[in-house]
């Protein structure tokens, strides 16, 4: 099976809130001292693909749309033994328009050629659009299954997808090709690359295309959405720390506060 995994580079979402700043005039997040990392759900998607390949064979191609520096996240994917990598260079700063990204990914995927499944993250940890998978499926005219945690072979030409729902999970079966968005699960926690594979990743070929190479003209692509405002909400609650001379006194006081709240229900 040929699997394509779409990978986005984002500002480290784990930086503490107190270190996070935005430029409200430009409506962009400030980089500050934060690292650029692979979006966690893209790591979950790659992990899902790696496990499928280990069990059933196949090839994994990773694709990213982003600035030159996004090569880093593709190298990391190669270090995790993805077979091939493609970067479509797009230097436009700020919010990435989900439809523009989906169209660019669709164009790149068509150029890559044969594939059976495209895996994406359920959402990106920066703007959290949660739309690229659905839009890409529409651009490619393919079925889409969201919030998946694993894939398994089914009848020839088909695949079984286990996906999470609000109340549990369900098993869907789809013909290939298809688009799948991946969510986190205990089974797809991303692995750590081996040192040897990290070294080798720098020697693996990485294809770079311009937008023109994939036939995308940013000027003629009408916008989908824009950021009108970006700000940091200021909301802090004053926490009353429960005091007491002994552990027992503290627990008693804490229990009383809980009881008070629950009695008011």
């Amino acid at each position: 099976m040929n699997i394509i995994v779409c990978i986005k580079q984002i500002l480290d979402p784990e930086i503490p809130a107190r270190d996070f700043r935005v430029d409200s005039a430009k409506r962009e997040a400030e980089r500050g001292s934060a690292n650029l990392v692979t979006n966690i759900f893209c790591e979950n998607a790659l992990e899902t693909a790696l496990q499928f390949r280990e069990a059933h064979g196949g090839k994994i191609t990773v694709v990213s749309v982003g600035p030159e520096g996004a090569e880093d996240v593709l190298r990391k994917a190669l270090a995790l033994t993805a077979n091939e990598a493609v970067l479509v260079i797009n230097d436009a700063p700020g919010l990435a328009d989900p439809l523009f990204v989906a169209r660019t990914l669709a164009a790149a995927i068509r150029k890559i050629g044969a594939f059976d499944a495209v895996l994406l993250g359920r959402e990106a940890g920066d703007w959290g659009a949660g739309q690229t998978g659905g839009l890409l499926a529409e651009e490619l005219g393919l079925p889409c299954i969201s919030f998946a945690e694993s894939l398994a072979p089914a009848a020839p030409g088909a695949v079984q997808v286990k996906r999470q729902t609000d109340s549990g999970w369900e098993l869907l079966e789809s013909t290939m090709p298809l688009v799948v968005t991946i969510t986190n699960h205990e089974k797809n926690v991303p692995r750590i690359p081996k040192t040897r594979d990290v070294m080798q990743s720098y020697r693996k070929p990485l294809t770079k295309w311009t937008l023109a190479d994939v036939g995308i003209d940013p000027a003629s692509t009408a916008a989908y959405y824009e950021v009108a405002e970006l700000s940091i909400p200021r909301k802090e609650t004053q926490c009353e720390f429960i005091a007491g001379d002994t552990l027992e006194a503290k627990i008693d006081a804490f229990a009383s506060r809980l009881t008070e709240v629950m009695r008011a229900l």
Binding site: A17, F20, A29, W127, Y224, Y225, V227, A228, E229, I232
Partner: peptide, 9 residues
């Protein structure tokens, strides 16, 4: 960490 107002085009 931030709040955005998104304008749907």
């Amino acid at each position: 960490k931030a709040t955005a107002v998104i304008a749907l085009v």
